[in-house]
Design a protein around this nucleic acid. Structure first.
Lengths: 231, 231
DNA sequence: CGCTGAGTTGACAAGATTCAAGGGCCGTGG
DNA sequence: CCACGGCCCTTGAATCTTGTCAACTCAGCG
């Protein structure tokens, strides 16, 4: 059934994460507490979306009724490039928010696909605006503004730098959510890492094995143990 | 005086742009029209900031009192990477908005530097939030949400693809603002293009000359004429 | 127990970087 | 007005990294 067979008896579930470590935490609390005009309110529904590996959370262009936070598992977001091929925009760990771009656009800009069995929290959006002023909590503004922050792409420098930065970035993000930053589980395939880093699967494999030989990491299948890895 | 001497008698001023073609247009109009609580209102001041080549519009980490739109000229935004070196996040044409990340963070996340004598419109921000709900127009939400949209980095693929996509992207953005999309003025140096595209100055030069020989473009110094360039 | 698909590895080719040198345009100053 | 020096930009040649192609390993699953 699963469209993604993984080698090595890959462990599947990352998370679940505690609400207190989630980027939506503040918004969730506030939306439950603050009273809004009934016609245009948005509620912190307890709605959960469970996804099998390969299942879409949402698709680019589809009408957006909600934004999401990853509760457990891991997802990727993808867009179609100008040349027509699908490219991976990012990977998303528990506690991270997806679909914020839909807030003002009314539709999603990318596909969000589960890399392993995952669960996402769904926050229902207000009805489409009619041109008047919307109420919006400072928490929501912070969220949007933070997401609007210009970011440095990881797909830069040598192949070794790309892979190293990829691992360190993932470790940092997982570590900040309360996971063990030195025990990574790569839910994505080597091919997906290569796509994301704008390189080839063989190159990713070679760099990982090289770091393994140098004892900077210990890699076995989807499990990566960071030993003394630095940029 | 100028810290950037350019070869070829480089023409300097791009723009000015008409307000109707500016991304801040809607927000500017609304802020002038809509009444807000005086204590936390934000106004569409007519304030302009004129910048010499190399002058900063704002610096990373500095307290943010405003967001900006480019009125004429061209700017770059830069961040310091994890490795400590300065990298160019993007170039900004007339009509584009800068500093949106400061809206919720209170400070800017990157440096914004003029690439040629430029003028920016300044929109004063509200006082820092006290935890209560802020009023915010749908236009402002759209702006933030649009900026939060995940983007595909141009620094991908072969050197030729990078340079080509860079030129096409610039042409598209200028064309959408009413400029001639086939008559580009590169306010940034070759070195800055190379930094942005994660390659070397020699490579940028070679690709440009190759495209020139193929008559896909006509390049002379900072002037680039797109003849039949395609991705 | 062989099939399948992901991952690894090796040999070679293609492409980019590096190093070095030359050309063009500008502003300055004789 | 022209010569000079500086800075960008261009160009060439050698080197190194990465991509390409192909073979092979390994683990799960029927």
């Amino acid at each position: 059934m699963s469209t993604l067979k993984k080698a090595g008896g890959r462990p599947r579930h990352i998370g679940p994460i505690a609400c207190r470590s989630c980027d939506l935490n503040e918004v969730c609390r506030l939306t439950g507490l603050i009273a809004f005009d009934a016609g245009r309110s948005w509620r912190s529904s307890g709605a959960l979306r469970s996804l099998e590996t390969g299942a879409p959370l949402f698709r680019a262009g589809s009408a957006a009724n909600a934004i999401y936070a990853v509760r457990q598992g891991m997802l990727k977001t993808t867009r179609v490039s100008a040349e027509g091929d699908e490219r991976i925009v990012g990977f998303h760990t528990p506690g991270e928010v997806l679909g914020l771009e839909a807030f003002g656009m009314g539709s999603f800009a990318c596909d969000a696909i589960a890399l392993e069995p995952s669960v996402c929290c769904e926050l229902t959006l207000p009805l489409p605006g009619d041109g008047r002023v919307h109420e919006l909590s400072t928490a929501m503004i912070r969220l949007l503004s933070k997401a609007a922050e210009p970011r440095l792409d990881l797909a830069r420098g040598s192949a070794r730098e790309r892979v190293t930065n990829f691992l360190l970035d993932l470790a940092r993000r997982l570590g900040s959510r309360g996971f063990d930053a030195n025990q990574l589980i790569l839910s994505m395939s080597r091919q997906e890492i290569a796509d994301f880093l704008d390189t080839r699967i063989e190159t990713v494999s070679r760099v990982l094995q090289q770091l393994n030989r140098e004892k900077a990491i210990h890699v076995r299948g989807s499990r990566v143990n960071l030993l003394r890895l630095s940029a």
